[in-house]
């Protein structure tokens, strides 16, 4: 079985949990969550999952939750494993062991701690003007196994400038911009007195905390890769990582593409190659993160565009951006045979 097929199977299993066996029976909160999970796969359900999240945490945090999870594990059903400080939804002991391996490897190889509490704190710190009662509601969330797989795949693209390998790379002179990754339930909509819990944000980078977080709405998103949530998870994660690790290249990126006069303003210059997506049209940072996302996860999409956008409009073919990123990544200077080549669109497994 290919890795991809295995992931699909695991995802399918996760989405079709059976009822907790009698006589214990699931607590009402758990039953509602399980019912919601059966239909997971769209934004509406994602929002419903968020609304149930408090109940999930309460269940996981007490003895009833422990009993339920043990019962589910012994019955061969999906369950929530505790790995260090993290909660991870898995379908088997083997998957639990693999999740533990991923978390350890990410720390050992890339110098990135998988720590949900750091993400919760990062959200609270960066939304300091949001209402206190909203900030207090920012909570950690359970990782999906597929998210950890995506996290490892995404970080592998940046391996030459992470962890101990950074000291033999072009980036040796700069501190690593990301040192932790988190799964948080929801972000906050804006950093003002009207900020509220955020039903839409998939991921977010927090520069001052050297952290990025994935959020619950990302569990079901396939916004760039319809029907392919695992690939979307990897892409979203690459996007967030790029906000940190690629920031140093932003100035040169703007110069070479000619689309921006500065980080926040489009040049309007005729003939300038536009970003690969409308989302990347917000500012140069989003443009660079979107471009990096496609460079690693779907390079043909970056080179050839979305198939409908005219030259100079978002979604157009981006050969300049592709060439720029090829050059930047090439300068990371790795030993031959260890180069982070882009994925092939047709060979994701």
């Amino acid at each position: 079985m290919t890795k991809r097929a295995k992931e699909d199977e695991l995802t399918a299993e996760r989405r079709t949990p059976e009822a907790v066996p009698a006589p214990a029976g699931p607590p009402p909160e758990l039953a509602r969550v399980l019912a919601a999970q059966r239909g997971a796969g769209n934004a509406m359900v994602s929002r419903a999952l968020i609304k149930q999240r408090t109940g999930v945490r309460q269940i996981h945090g007490d003895w009833i939750g422990d009993i339920v999870n043990k019962a589910k594990k012994s019955a061969g059903m999906p369950y929530v494993a505790t790995i260090g400080s993290e909660k991870v939804q898995v379908v088997s002991a083997a998957e639990e062991a693999e999740a533990a391996r991923i978390i350890k490897d990410i720390q050992d190889k890339y110098g990135i701690e998988v720590s949900t509490s750091k993400g919760v704190q990062a959200v609270k710190d960066h939304y300091d003007k949001a209402p206190e009662d909203v900030r207090k509601k920012v909570k950690g969330a359970t990782w999906l196994f597929a998210e950890l797989v995506a996290l490892e795949r995404a970080l592998a693209h940046f391996a030459p400038i992470l962890g101990s390998r950074r000291s033999t790379s072009e980036r040796i002179g700069a501190e690593q911009e990301i040192t932790s990754a988190s799964k948080v339930d929801q972000s906050i909509t804006k950093n003002t007195a009207t900020g509220a819990l955020d039903d839409a944000t998939l991921g977010e980078f927090f520069r001052d905390s050297k952290n990025f977080a994935l959020f619950t709405p990302g569990e079901t998103s396939d916004i760039d890769f319809p029907g392919d949530v695992p690939k979307q998870l990897e892409a979203t994660t690459v996007h967030e990582i790029a906000h940190g690790l690629m920031k140093y290249a932003e100035g040169d990126f703007m110069k070479e593409t000619g689309y921006w006069t500065d980080r926040a303003t489009k040049s309007g210059t005729a003939g300038a190659e536009a970003p690969p997506t409308s989302y990347g049209d917000k500012n140069a940072s989003e443009d660079l993160s979107e471009s990096t996302m496609f460079f690693f996860v779907s390079p043909d999409r970056l080179k050839n565009g979305d198939g409908s956008a005219a030259a100079g409009t978002p979604g157009n073919p981006c050969p300049k951006r592709y060439a720029f990123l090829e050059k930047i990544v090439g300068k990371w200077k790795l030993p031959v045979g260890d180069f982070p080549t882009p994925n092939k669109d047709t060979a994701y497994a």
Binding site: T201, L202, G203, E204, H239, E240, Y279, K282, N283, S289
Partner: peptide, 8 residues
Amino acid sequence: EDPGQFIR
């Protein structure tokens, strides 16, 4: 020009 919602 409204940049639209930021989601990532």
